[in-house]
Amino acid sequence: MPVESDSGLADVFDLDSVAVVGCSSTPGKAAHDIPRYLREHGYDVIPVNPFADEIFGRTAYDSLSGVEEDVDVVDVFRPSEEVAGIVDEAIDRGDVQVVWLQLDITDDKAAARAEDAGLRVVQDKCMKVEHRRLTA
């Protein structure tokens, strides 16, 4: 069952590293501004974007499986159709604790698979909105 309670969401914000799949290098896009907000609030944001070499002064990885650092949370800014593959990569890594699907992104089957593998899942919620709401 996806994380929906305030206490469950707050637990996610106690984690440190966030790999942002679909992170954008373009200011003004949600996939850039939300990760920037997370960085400004102390999170270790790891950009994943095969079309960028660097975002926020950090190496941008081509895929989640290529990320060399430990990852606590995978924040997804990709279409719902791509979630299944991202979840597979998250499960295979072995270090991911949470898969967070941004607004309007859902995949119930992939979410169930992630949960069966012991990961927590948040669907169709914005990390920035929820962080602001719970930490204000």
Rank of each mutant, 00 (worst) to 15 (best):
V3F: 04
V3T: 15
E4I: 10
E4Q: 15
E4G: 15
S5F: 03
S5A: 12
D6V: 08
D6M: 10
S7I: 14
S7D: 12
G8P: 05
G8M: 07
L9F: 10
A10G: 04
D11H: 10
V12E: 00
V12K: 01
V12P: 02
V12A: 12
D14A: 15
D16F: 01
A19C: 14
A19S: 13
A19P: 13
V20D: 01
S24C: 08
S25Y: 05
T26C: 04
G28C: 03
G28F: 04
A30P: 14
I34Q: 06
Y37W: 05
L38R: 01
L38V: 04
R39D: 09
R39Y: 00
R39C: 08
H41K: 07
H41T: 09
G42D: 06
G42H: 02
G42L: 05
Y43D: 11
D44R: 11
V45P: 00
I46T: 05
N49F: 03
N49H: 06
F51C: 09
A52S: 13
A52L: 04
A52K: 11
A52C: 13
D53T: 14
D53K: 09
E54I: 03
I55N: 01
I55Q: 03
F56P: 10
R58F: 01
R58E: 15
T59F: 03
Y61D: 05
S63G: 14
S63K: 11
L64S: 10
G66V: 13
G66H: 06
V67K: 02
V67A: 10
V67M: 03
V67R: 04
V67P: 06
E68G: 10
E69S: 15
V71H: 01
V71F: 12
V71Q: 08
D72W: 08
V73R: 00
V73C: 02
V73L: 02
V74G: 06
D75S: 12
V76D: 00
F77D: 05
F77L: 02
R78W: 03
E81K: 06
E82M: 11
E82D: 15
V83H: 02
A84K: 10
I86P: 09
I86N: 04
V87E: 05
V87T: 10
V87I: 11
D88F: 09
E89Q: 12
E89H: 00
A90T: 11
I91V: 15
D92Y: 00
D92Q: 07
D92A: 15
D92P: 02
D95V: 09
V96C: 11
Q97S: 12
Q97V: 06
V98D: 03
V98M: 00
V99N: 00
V99M: 00
V99R: 00
W100S: 03
Q102P: 05
L103Y: 09
L103Q: 05
D107L: 02
D108K: 10
D108M: 13
K109E: 15
K109V: 15
A110C: 12
A111G: 14
A111Y: 12
D116Q: 14
A117V: 14
A117M: 10
L119D: 05
L119C: 06
R120H: 04
R120T: 12
R120F: 03
V121Y: 00
V121R: 01
V122R: 04
Q123P: 07
Q123A: 13
D124M: 10
D124N: 15
K125V: 13
K125A: 14
K125R: 15
C126N: 09
K128H: 06
V129K: 08
V129F: 13
E130N: 07
R132S: 11
R132T: 07
R133D: 09
L134H: 05
L134V: 13
A136M: 12
